[in-house]
Design a protein around this nucleic acid. Sequence first.
DNA 1: TCATATATCGGACTTTTAGTTCGTTTTATG
DNA 2: CATAAAACGAACTAAAAGTCCGATATATGA
Lengths: 208, 208
Amino acid sequence: MGARKKEALEQFNRDNILSAAKELFEKKGVENTTMDDIAKYADYSKSTIYVYFKSKDDIYNCILERYMNILACQIESDVASEKDFEKGYYRLCNSLVKFEHEYPQYYAGLLGQEKITNGKKKTEIKLNTVGEGINDAITGLLQKGIEKKVLRDDIELEPTVLYVWSAISGIIQVAGKKSDVFDTTIKMGKEEYLDYSFKTFYESLIRR
Amino acid sequence: MGARKKEALEQFNRDNILSAAKELFEKKGVENTTMDDIAKYADYSKSTIYVYFKSKDDIYNCILERYMNILACQIESDVASEKDFEKGYYRLCNSLVKFEHEYPQYYAGLLGQEKITNGKKKTEIKLNTVGEGINDAITGLLQKGIEKKVLRDDIELEPTVLYVWSAISGIIQVAGKKSDVFDTTIKMGKEEYLDYSFKTFYESLIRR
DNA sequence: TCATATATCGGACTTTTAGTTCGTTTTATG
DNA sequence: CATAAAACGAACTAAAAGTCCGATATATGA
């Protein structure tokens, strides 16, 4: 087989396996999906699965990486295209909210929250590259705010990138887990709460 | 055996097992600690372990609950005893930082971040009670800020409790995981970064 | 002291699942 | 058609959670 076709076929197989695994993970949960399940659903023998991936963790990480890419692209395009700092900020927030809403299972992975080793076999998570895309987008956003003198004078670029990222992520994460408090303890819905939080948090950044 | 003594003995055994498990979890990681390990180290037979705890998850959750209690007490006493809002705020932050530093493995559990089910056996996490202690402490803190007119007028108590908790937790969480960026990308150490973040975040709350 | 109940022991057993091995079969292609 | 690579499949190993049950130790009350 020609090297070109061979490679394309390999990629096709990898993708096939990944999307089968993705479906199962989403339907039954990662822990409750066995390698045999994946093999059967993807329609390969288990041996073949192990030709393409070296462990279940490997499969999971590949899926995670893919989602991270989706998010990074989303954020990069959404945020970079916006000239206005305030609008860019809310776009960033909304991209993250949307992502958490669509792929709640993968959201934890974002915060570097994932166990790197799952027991026996370590699998390097090389999400750094993707994380850098997001990092760049936030950096760009903040730079606009600095140029336009929207940000406070004592805001320093580098630490603030991490600060914004981690605070917003934390807010969304907890809101996702505490669905019970909305409309009861907190007399507003989740959406409204998130808007309120982002608006309040915005105040920590801007000149007044 | 008298009911009183019997109960005390049972409690003693439970505690023994828990503290053995805790040591092992901290030394080798939860995933790499087997029930046989725990039994051997705690010096009970495996059958007896299963008399006192119904699963490994159960053991883990009991330990988690204990740590949550420690944190809740710490926060309650630290924060409640402080009259000044600003000082109380920084005490809250520092309690959390200290906790993350001492028990990084259990920090994730705080954010309601923990998988409730670990596969087959579900184990109810009843951390709500503990979480409420923390909740009350933050509520009390914010109320001081409202009374003293330190907080902005448009701050609403209930959503802000969750907002403060989740943002601070997120900041600490990410800082704990991204130790590589400090002193390099971000030209400050972790401590300094955290101070900077808490100070910046404080600005989102107060009247100016 | 003896009888009895209860706690604990210990080790074999079951089950589940990740990951491996290897001989066989299929398939592409020269 | 011959051959090499890819995929199969089924049996296997290993590790760990959790179960069972008969044996043993221990406390207590008559």
